[in-house]
Design a protein around this nucleic acid. Sequence first.
DNA 1: ATTCTGACAGCAA
DNA 2: TTTGCTGCCAGAA
Length: 115
Amino acid sequence: MSQSKQKTSSDFFSMVHEVTRCIPYGRITSYGAIARYLGSGRSARMVGWALNASHTSKDFIPAHRVVNHNGLLTGKYHFGNSTTMAQLLENEGILIENDRIINFDEKFWDPNTEL
DNA sequence: ATTCTGACAGCAA
DNA sequence: TTTGCTGCCAGAA
């Protein structure tokens, strides 16, 4: 046992950041899926929180590809402009209407399955 | 140390 | 059916 769990706290954020960056272009996922991948199925709130910290990250994290299980752009207001998130997603070929992803199921990317 | 919040999700009424 | 409450875990005040 060397460095199995040197900093469980920061690891959670890093984990979310890593998974989020692993989301392929034109794909999306849900907070619950990532939370489930981390081992805590119902800790989806923490995922959102970690994504909030992603804003402070040095690297660009496609947090706009992470939405709630409804495909609704819940965190669009955190991108500065409420339209930025939808614009980015549409730019990647994702259909959005009323801040909701139309082909959510089609573009859904599950880390538990894909990763 | 305690309390509250937070980009969700699931279940109850 | 919709609406709302709770549960989850960790970080900040």
